[in-house]
């Protein structure tokens, strides 16, 4: 991935042999990665570089239409992405991406039931989760139990409103981080302002 100063802004690009997927610009071999559309892009633009490498084996929970996944697929061109999504409509679009990319294994399932795909997904180096659900932390931990190599890394994006729409976001974040601490080493966390309101990401390392 590449950060470029352009048009008075820092912009993010990934090198890609494939065409544009969600209407993003393509300049030469590079696809622009828009922070407004992808939380992972905003994480990187906020200065945190996640441990996703060329040969990473990655489990992606909540692939939606594949906006973020398409860029991750550019990055791990020697690895594999197992992408889980359970909503039929966005999955249709995502499937088109999966057909084009050789390193994406699409799985149409509920991330809350890792049992369902336990015989498909191998042990992975990285788990990325972006699902706005009340029990998203529990889902994250369960997937690590099933698929995390020891010392595997992960990023979870938490939306305060989807955990509790009335409580104070800072209070929610504190609780979420606290509940992660027993199973993970917390490496970094931050808000996603100004790109996404009331969201944070937490980068972790699996203790199991």
């Amino acid at each position: 991935m590449f950060k470029v100063e352009m048009e008075g802004k820092t912009r993010l690009f990934t090198r890609s042999a494939y065409p544009s997927h969600y209407g993003e610009r393509k300049i030469g071999d590079y696809r622009e990665w828009l922070p407004s559309r992808s939380k992972l892009a905003s994480i990187i633009l906020k200065g945190y570089v996640p441990g996703i490498k060329r040969d990473t084996r990655l489990l992606y929970l909540g692939a939606a239409t594949g906006t973020t996944a398409s860029h991750v697929s550019d990055i791990v061109d020697g690895g594999v992405i197992y992408a889980v999504e359970y909503s039929a409509k966005p999955f249709q679009k995502f499937l088109r991406l999966a057909m084009e990319r050789k390193n994406i294994i699409p799985i149409f399932a509920d991330a809350g039931n890792p049992e369902r795909y336990s015989g498909i997904v191998e042990k992975v180096d990285f788990i990325y989760q972006d699902i706005a659900q009340r029990n998203q932390v529990g889902i994250f931990v369960r997937n690590f139990e099933f698929f995390g190599k020891s010392g595997a890394e992960g990023i979870i994006c938490v939306k305060a409103k989807s955990i509790d729409s009335t409580a104070d976001p800072d209070e929610i974040y504190r609780k979420v981080i606290e509940s992660l601490e027993s199973r993970f080493e917390i490496m970094e966390w931050n808000e996603l302002e100004p790109y996404h309101r009331d969201h944070i990401f937490i980068s972790v390392r699996w203790k199991g």
Binding site: V80, A88, K89, F91, Q92, L95, A98, M99, K102, N103, I104, I105, P106, I107, F108, I120
Partner: peptide, 24 residues
Amino acid sequence: YYRILRRVAIEVAEEHVERELKRE
């Protein structure tokens, strides 16, 4: 391995999505 896994995954997903969209 991955080529076959991917092919099967896509075939199964296509079938399930289609069924799902009709019914839910």
